[in-house]
Each structure stands twice: as structure tokens, then as C-alpha cells.
Design a protein around this nucleic acid. Structure first.
Length: 277
DNA sequence: AACAAGACCTGCATGC
DNA sequence: TGCATGCAGGTCTTGT
């Protein structure tokens, strides 16, 4: 489900209920998600006060008052939902409950591609899941030069390269398609072959599409909801994603069959052959 | 070292 | 209605 904008939306929701409050009770209903939960997971969280809820790429980083960090990834179908009382009975895919701050946050994840871990705050940058991540696309210093440096020499497609979290962190299938469309870059171009003009357009497009999506509360297709239970609305702004056969905005590509869908690296790519080169 | 393909797991829409 | 197939906001592991 979640790419950077959805995770950022979840982060903001959790920060509101968690920051400054303690986990009074934590219930893990199964010992594993995609990976095993760490030993004594619930016990190690109970009684801890949350200092901040941060994000790195698609990971949530919940800083605790004992110097540990709860690291969580929502996988494809993970949700964090705030409610006044725990679900009773718990849903089939309600795997973890966090009680505290006068509310209950339920982690629900049908496909169980998500994960949670505990790490020392001082060592978080060396955590195996964090260490290899590329730059944050919304950071100040992310620009055409930085993007060029990340893509230099790459022969794989620009689509596959942007999905690689080691090159740029936080993009997923939706926002790569949308950013390439906005930049007018064809998805099958070799990543290392983009010229300075395309790189500038692409770096800008990545920033603006992510910023607009965050402002809309993310994209709600199947699984994403905000912790409040509200949906996000950026799916209404998709130009190409999921729009095979439709015309892209303000384009007469309908005459050629509209938005095309191809498969790259096992994932659907949506693009306009008229506007993207 | 870089890249592609397969694996993980469940639910839903579609078509016969 | 029932069953098979394909698809889904991800990423880790394996093999070339």
C-alpha cells in the first residue's frame, strides 16, 4: 500500500496520539509479520514514553524514552488505525494493538508484508534495513545533480531505478509512474542516459508529486487509510496510474489508445507514449 | 557489481 | 454458484 506520502500521512496521525504519551499496554497477536517480531516485543514497549514519531523512506521510526526505536514498515497492506477502544473481537488481520495516550492504535495487515523491529536509537543508521537507503527525495539537497549521481552508469530502466530504494528512498509504483509522466520521461529509458534537462524535470516532478500527495492525505486505492480512519484523496489526481486506455490530462492520446500499461520488473507501468520520451 | 526473476501472503475483480 | 486466473501502494533472496 504505502509509499512515502502514505507513510508520512500515517506518521502525522500517530504523532498526534503518541508523542508525549506512554504505551500502557501492547498486544502482539502473532509472533511474526514478514519477519519475526523481536524477542519480548510487547513487554519492551510497555511503560515506554514516545518522544517522537519520525519517518525514513517508507519506515516509521518511533523514538522511545529508553533510547530504543520502534521501527515499522507497512508493507503493501498495513494500516495503523486509531480508535477509542480495542476492536472486539479483533479482526482476522489485527496483529498488534498499542494502548496509550487515551486511545488504541491497531496495526492491521492482511498480507503481512509489513514488519516491526526494535533498535537502539544511536545505531539506527546502521540498522540493516536502514543503512542502504538512498537519499530522501523531499530533503533540501535532493536535486538534479544528486539524482544524476545516483543514476550515473545505470543501464536498467529509469522506472526500475526509481523503484530501487538504494538509489532514491520512498518512491513506489504509483509515484514513479506519476513523476515520470510529469517529467515527460519514458519509463523504459536507460536510467543513466537522461540528460540534464530531463534530470531537472524529474527531480522537480518527484518533489512536487510527493508534496501534493502528502497534502491530499495520500492515495486510497484498496488499503490506505489515515490513522483517523479518513481516506486520502490523491488518487483523484492520478494522470496515468491505473488509467490504462483513458486519455491522459489535456492530451489527444486517446486517438492512439490513451494511457498504456506495460510490465517492468514485474510491476505495471502506466505512461503516455505521446508525452513521454 | 548490477540486474532480472521468484518468493512471501491474502483478498478482490473478472471470466468461464 | 463455483472455480481458476490475474492483479495489488513492497522488498528480500536467489541466480545469472
Amino acid at each position: 500500500m504505502p509509499e512515502l506520502p502514505e507513510v508520512e500521512t500515517v506518521r502525522r496521525g500517530l504523532a498526534q496520539v503518541w508523542e508525549g504519551f506512554r504505551f500502557e499496554r501492547v498486544i502482539a497477536r502473532r509472533p511474526d509479520l514478514r519477519l519475526p517480531l523481536p524477542a519480548r516485543f510487547a513487554e519492551r514497549l510497555e511503560g515506554r514514553r514516545v518522544e517522537q514519531v519520525a519517518r525514513r523512506a517508507k519506515y516509521l521510526l518511533v523514538g522511545l524514552d529508553d533510547g530504543m526505536v520502534l521501527l515499522a514498515h507497512l508493507g503493501m497492506s498495513g494500516r495503523m488505525v486509531i480508535s477509542a477502544a480495542p476492536p472486539d473481537p479483533p479482526g482476522r488481520h489485527d496483529h498488534v494493538e498499542f494502548h496509550g495516550g487515551g486511545a488504541v492504535v491497531t496495526y492491521s495487515d492482511p498480507r503481512r508484508f509489513g514488519l516491526m523491529d526494535l533498535a537502539e536509537a544511536g545505531a539506527i543508521k546502521r540498522h540493516p534495513l536502514i543503512a542502504g537507503l538512498g537519499p530522501e527525495p523531499l530533503a533540501e539537497d535532493f536535486d538534479a545533480d544528486l539524482l544524476a549521481a545516483r543514476l550515473r552508469g545505470r543501464t536498467t530502466s529509469i522506472k526500475a531505478a526509481l523503484l530501487d530504494q538504494r538509489l532514491v528512498a520512498g518512491l513506489g509504483n504509483i509515484y514513479v509512474c506519476e513523476a515520470l509522466f510529469r517529467a515527460g520521461v519514458a519509463p523504459d529509458r536507460a536510467a543513466g542516459s537522461l540528460g540534464p534537462e530531463s534530470l531537472t524535470l524529474l527531480a522537480d516532478s518527484i518533489k512536487t508529486v510527493l508534496t501534493e500527495a502528502i497534502a491530499a492525505g495520500g492515495s486510497s486505492l484498496r488499503d490506505h487509510v489515515r490513522p483517523s480512519g479518513e481516506i486520502g484523496y490523491f488518487q483523484l489526481g492520478f494522470a496515468v496510474y491505473g488509467r490504462e486506455g483513458e486519455p491522459c490530462p489535456g492530451c489527444d492520446c486517446a486517438a492512439e489508445g490513451g494511457v498504456r500499461r506495460i510490465v517492468q520488473a514485474g510491476r505495471s507501468t502506466f505512461f503516455c507514449a505521446r508525452k513521454q520520451h
